[in-house]
């Protein structure tokens, strides 16, 4: 893994020495807190973070690709990729270094939503299980979106294209499990296909975690799916 730490460090410095991380954090914190209140958080009359977590998959669909689009497209666009890969840094180390740096920023963003936790604990006696697993699910979901975004960023030197493709990619994986999509599929395909599509979706798994259910197969899914996208990312960069 030669070069992983140096790439990781450089990326983190780059996020926080430019407005990038701050703009991202402010926008994310604003919308992640605004959404539950806009959806009548108080009228729910329960001290739970359900509404908060429920809004995240949609919010992430736009914000995570915005974070991921620069990862490789910028590097290609400014040609600094030629510098990066003529240093003794291997492709997997560079891909993972960038991925984990961006994921770190996303995890910091989630950690900064603690006022929400304080709010529900002030308002009542929240059930801590679903809050912990909800956060776990959010971190994993962000990582999965990020891996998809990182892949699409590596296939183009245009950041706008990378963003659009990543949004579509993430949306496909999120909404594949929605009842509407599954209903349509059910009319045309055998049950096996419908079940396969549903099992590829983030939706059901994230909802389970929101409810406090952490199944081993869901954890495995959130490890192997991003790993697959990152492996594809490595293959693309090796074929430069």
């Amino acid at each position: 893994m030669r070069g992983f730490l140096s790439v990781y460090k450089r990326e983190i410095i780059s996020y926080f020495s430019t407005p990038l991380a701050y703009v991202f954090l402010v926008i994310f914190l604003f919308f992640s807190h605004w959404l539950p209140f806009q959806r009548n958080f108080f009228e729910l009359r329960t001290a739970s973070m359900w509404l908060f977590f429920d809004g995240l998959p949609l919010l992430f669909i736009f914000l995570v690709p915005a974070m991921a689009m620069r990862l490789w497209a910028e590097e290609r666009g400014s040609n600094s990729i030629e510098l990066l890969f003529t240093l003794p840094i291997t492709v997997p180390a560079a891909v993972l270094g960038k991925f984990f740096a961006a994921w770190t920023v996303l995890i910091i963003a989630l950690a900064l939503t603690c006022p929400m936790v304080l709010t529900v604990s002030y308002l009542g006696n929240p059930d801590w299980g679903p809050i912990v697993t909800g956060y776990l699910g959010s971190v994993l979901l962000a990582g999965a979106y990020l891996a998809i975004g990182s892949f699409f960023s590596s296939i183009t030197r245009n950041q706008v294209i990378a963003f659009v493709l990543a949004v579509v990619g993430c949306a496909v994986f999120l909404y594949a499990g929605s009842p509407t999509v599954l209903g349509v599929l059910h009319r045309a395909f055998p049950m096996g296909v419908v079940e396969a599509v549903e099992s590829l979706s983030f939706r059901g798994r994230f909802e389970d975690m929101q409810r406090g259910i952490v199944a081993l197969r869901d954890l495995a899914f959130f490890v192997f799916l991003p790993a697959g996208w990152l492996a594809a990312n490595i293959v693309v960069l090796r074929r430069r």
Partner: peptide, 20 residues
């Protein structure tokens, strides 16, 4: 090619890191 958002010192530090 170089990273435009870095200072010359920061950039050379990164290169040193990458080269051990």
């Amino acid at each position: 090619p170089a990273y435009n958002e870095m200072t010359a010192t920061g950039f050379l530090k990164f290169v040193c890191d990458a080269r051990g």
